[in-house]
Design a binder for these strands. Sequence first.
DNA 1: GCCATTTGACCACG
DNA 2: CGTGGTCAAATGGC
Length: 293
Amino acid sequence: MDNSSTDLNRAIEGLIRGREFTRRLKEIIKKPLVVGGEVANIMAEELVAKIMESFSETLSVINNSDVIVATPVEVKSPEDYSSGSCKSSDRRGCYKRRKTSESNIKESSDLVDDGHAWRKYGQKQILNSTYPRHYFRCTHKYDQKCQASKQVQKVQDNPQRFRTTYYGHHTCKAFPRVSQIILDSPMDGNSNYISFDQNHAFPSIKQETKEEVVFGFYPKIEDQIQSSSSDYFLPNDNDHDHLTPATFEASGSRMTSPDVMSSGVYSSCTTTSNDNLEIDIDFEEGLWNFDQV
DNA sequence: GCCATTTGACCACG
DNA sequence: CGTGGTCAAATGGC
């Protein structure tokens, strides 16, 4: 963890510098006449620029270290939200609200695949926020009764960043890759997956992997939404209100941009220390879609 | 044809 | 009643 400690130091230094510059700026603002109008203005501008620079640098340092915020948030939990009974059988509606007791917020400049297969089940425009919120549940919600879910939303002040709020934790087993499952023989030491595999017939493993792929490129797609069409807020003149450019579709195979690979793959390994996010996949296999900025 | 995503509707909660 | 979370029919890709 030398890397991360170095980054931490750099981040701290940047913040300290920013604080110092801010302090000086405050001095100037406090007694502008002493220094002299024009000169004070220039100095103030310089300081502001330095402050910005310090903070930007700090942010970039933090960005590279992948995990920004890991704020445990308590959400009151009525244990089971059983919401009465399903009255109308034909209609929708017999559903429960979130019943997990805590959430875990993670913010990053990129959507790092957490090693689990997610399935999107909703998207909602949130009041007073520019960007829609996306709702995901674990792919194995039903076949493995996995209650994990998450919400992803762009950070209001910083659209390059995504805030992911995790609810619940995965009780499912994450299967990183088809090849691994198939190729792993029960004999070799790494038989975790195999033993589990005997209990459940997994409907389709390829889905999982596909989802991972899709999710890996999710930020780019999201960017497309926002920058190119931004269908939700600026109705396109040529079309109706929803042009929805294949929002998260991108269908894995469409890995258009070459910059996807390499770069900072290793850094995603350094996340750890976040016990809520247990990524029990083999990184060698999983890394390639961890695309960093 | 299967399956994931989209998207409007439904519903709980404050 | 407004807002946000979830559902499920419709849609589209493979």
